[in-house]
Nucleic acid binder design. Structure first.
Lengths: 239, 239
DNA sequence: CGATCGTTTGACAAGGGTCAAAATGCGTGG
DNA sequence: CCACGCATTTTGACCCTTGTCAAACGATCG
């Protein structure tokens, strides 16, 4: 096998997403693109970071999926959230931070460093907005797991994931690869894999979800949104 | 009854907590104490802020409890977290932020503005650490609601609340007032009030929880901690 | 072509929800 | 001090969603 080295397609999820989050200067854009060339590659199913461990500098995911996991003493697992292309790991304002969760590569992963920003700059605004989105995702996760039925949880999650993917890859708004096993979904949703399986079948039967070979699409997205009360996230006014 | 006007004891939860989170300069401390005199009082059971609404400047809670709520279209409610004395509302780095949750006063509430900090200052480090704690609380909340049994959820929550209260009020480490109805607890834990009630009775029967007239204590805290796998939060190394 | 991982199915169990009513507590006003 | 009204807690009976255990099925990979 030919490991590592460069790859053909340029990966630019970080700069793409950040420039949608705020107005960036030409300098900042260039800096980001330079950072995107310092890639680090990681095999699937590997921990990038363990809970309680000191965090290295902030990094962005350029391709692949990661998830943030809490594992209990008896082996129960809760996935607290996913990290998608263009999103960040370890964005943190204070000194000597420790990882609040373990970070697990769901698929093979390409990451790059997230450059430092000047206070008051466009880039720092973009980071701040990214952080605000992360916050919303966590809040949405609490609500999902706390108050939605299994049926609603699954739909709501996948709807959110589609929106997040589409920020960086417009094609995802039509259909997208979901690289999750039903067991991972279960761990994210506070369910068991068996029940996730049955519930997905129900969604399919109801004509609300198509999931073939790991590719997702929604036959009638707006009906589904209404049914589970999904609404896209807004973090700021005048935006 | 003698309502309102000033109050006897000086409220200083904000400066107390912040100075435990980082080394503050004398100037900063003074600024905080000045801010603590600009109090705003709010009756219990009132919204301070609604989901999706523009946020005013950041504020701290000086006394009383608030909670962050998501309400679904059909009336289901999820409490995403609590805000205790010394903790913040609307700490946010980006411009024109919208509230991600509704903010509800659980008890009567006294708040004050949270002064701006200079980048790189001790105060800004303290804010950053406070934010990191908020993050942890949210992550813990996901894990609780996603993977713990009712019994564990209740214990784990109350243990966490005790630790958080004790930051500002050492006496809370022995026993403290929990101003929550069983219904509020239920909405926080993704349970029903009826089930919360039965579960609390179980905790009492097991000699793990004493709850009389709204005052909580733990007859054997370390046993309880082990039983539910509770561990205090650490956000940073060398700290 | 076995091994392994993920999905699917079935039968059954249990944790927690629902509904309804009784009991308790508490602030208000007489 | 008592009486009322409301909110909260408590109890009981029953039900439903989701979990558990086990096995079969299907893909993918050395």
């Amino acid at each position: 096998m030919s490991m590592a080295k460069p790859q053909r397609a340029a990966l630019k999820a970080m700069s793409t997403r950040l420039s949608r989050l705020a107005e960036l200067s030409a300098d900042e854009l260039e800096m980001l693109q330079a950072a995107e060339r310092e890639q680090r590659r990681l095999p699937a199913r590997r921990d990038l970071l363990s809970e309680g461990e000191p965090i290295g500098g902030p990094r962005a995911v350029l391709s692949g999926w990661a998830c943030r996991v809490r594992t209990l003493a008896d082996g129960r697992r809760q996935i607290v959230g996913f990290v998608l292309p263009g999103e960040f790991i370890g964005l943190c304002q204070h000194r000597n931070p420790l990882a609040p969760t373990t970070l697990l590569a769901v698929t093979e992963l390409v990451t790059c460093p997230a450059p430092r920003s000047e206070p008051g700059s466009g880039l720092s605004e973009a980071y701040a907005r990214s952080t605000a989105f992360d916050d919303h995702y966590l809040i949405a996760q609490v609500t999902r797991v706390g108050r939605l039925s299994a049926y609603e949880r699954i739909a709501d999650t996948i709807l959110e994931l589609q929106d997040r993917l589409a920020v960086v890859d417009p094609a995802a708004a039509v259909r997208f690869r979901l690289p999750l096993t039903q067991e991972l979904l279960a761990d994210a949703l506070g369910l068991t894999a068996v029940h996730v399986n049955r519930t997905i079948q129900a969604l399919r039967r109801d004509g609300l979800l198509a999931w073939q070979n790991g590719t997702i699409s929604f036959p009638d997205r707006s009906r589904l949104e209404k049914l589970v009360g999904y609404a896209p996230i807004r973090i700021s006014g005048l935006g």
